[in-house]
């Protein structure tokens, strides 16, 4: 029971807890804030996995950019609380929890089965650094990198077209 393990446990429990708050809260702003919290916890888990670059990008892109966009839209739409769900057990909720139970059962079966047999490989501590990721990205993964920039351009144009008041 060393320090890393305790750190991992706290991060994991907080991540799952804030995920549950995100989907169960009636107020969209509460959901958004607990989602930001979840993103920070995941960044901590990436640090436990020694993926420093991904951890920083997680905070910058998810907790920074994407959640600002979401909170901005919530503010713009001025949403109130979600109106009271019907008291009776509706089909949507039933279907949701059934699906969740099936997935959980699958998870349990996988965990009961043989271990994955993935041994931790000899540690190379620099694998998560910006230098290493950058070298990989600009040598072996150059074409996907360029393709993803096209996707981003298309998304920017699409977002502007969709959010424009009227297409003239």
């Amino acid at each position: 029971m060393n320090l890393t393990f305790i750190f991992f446990g706290i991060l994991g429990i907080l991540a799952i807890g804030s995920g549950i708050v995100t989907i169960s809260s009636k107020n969209p702003v509460t959901s958004a804030i607990s989602l930001v919290f979840l993103f920070f916890m995941l960044a901590g888990l990436y640090l436990v996995l020694q993926a420093q670059f991904i951890a920083v990008i997680q905070v910058l892109v998810y907790a920074g950019a994407i959640m600002v966009l979401v909170i901005f839209v919530i503010m713009l739409l001025n949403l109130g609380d979600e109106e009271k769900m019907k008291e009776k057990f509706n089909t949507r909720k039933g279907a949701g929890f059934l699906l969740g139970a099936i997935l959980l059962m699958q998870l349990a079966v996988v965990f009961m089965a043989q271990p994955f047999g993935v041994k931790k490989a000899s540690a190379s501590l620099n694998q998560g650094t910006i230098e290493f990721i950058g070298k990989e990205l600009f040598s072996n993964y150059l074409f996907p990198f360029e393709a993803i920039s096209l996707l981003l351009l298309a998304a920017i144009v699409g977002a502007i077209i969709l959010a424009k008041r009227k297409i003239d």
């Binding site: 995100t22 979401v70 949403l79 909720k93 699906l99 969740g100 997935l103």
Partner: peptide
């Protein structure tokens, strides 16, 4: 896996499009 299940339940049970998105 637990986080993924939470996400699935959120998509199926919630009605607010922004929360489905989250």
């Amino acid at each position: 896996a637990i986080l993924f299940i939470i996400g699935v339940i959120g998509v199926v049970t919630r009605r607010n499009a922004i929360i489905i998105f989250m």
